[in-house]
């Protein structure tokens, strides 16, 4: 066990857990933040995506040790932002949600893209979402949702 301190959704958090715990487990079990999902446990599916210092990372591959001093945002923090609201609306309007288990991670990946490229092409959207697996939608409506968000959220990103 060791004390690790980091910023989580704009608040300072200290946990006292083994350094080799996966950060995903810290979030879900110790902190009760279950919006980040476990799909594969090996960085393939992206359902566990969070932001670390503003960049998308797979929390299932992060040992707690790597989080020391970092700034973390999960879907629970992100959903309180204006940008999220735009993405949420676009996902609903375009029918981009089916079973929904990949969706929080998918929205985080979309933010990761739009934050750096507010008007992406479809090709750029496809590349940006390639680390997030969805088995329901065939991705088509997710592409449309990201395009819609990019348009409707003009100025936000």
């Amino acid at each position: 066990m060791a004390k690790v301190t980091f910023t989580l959704n704009d608040e300072t958090v200290t946990v006292d857990e083994p350094l080799n715990m996966r950060f995903l487990d810290i979030l879900r079990k110790e902190l009760g933040l279950t919006g980040s999902k476990e799909g594969c446990g090996e960085g393939e599916c992206g359902a566990c995506s969070v932001f670390m210092d503003g960049w998308l990372v797979n929390s299932c591959l992060l040992p707690l040790a790597s989080v020391e001093g970092r700034d973390i945002m999960t879907i629970e923090g992100y959903r309180e932002t204006k940008r999220y609201k735009v993405l949420e609306n676009a996902f609903v309007e375009e029918g981009a949600v089916q079973c929904g288990i990949c969706t929080p991670g998918m929205v985080m990946a979309a933010e990761n893209l739009l934050n750096r490229n507010p008007s992406p092409s479809e090709e750029e959207i496809r590349i940006a979402l390639a680390g997030n697996l969805c088995r329901c939608t065939g991705y088509e409506m997710i592409f449309k949702a990201v395009k819609r968000a990019s348009k409707e959220g003009e100025g936000l990103w």
Binding site: T34, I75, E76, E88, V92, G95, G100
Partner: peptide, 13 residues
């Protein structure tokens, strides 16, 4: 609009 999309997108479901 699908009725359960928001709770899924936001990670609340």
């Amino acid at each position: 609009r699908k009725v359960d999309s928001e709770e899924k997108i936001s990670g609340r479901a």
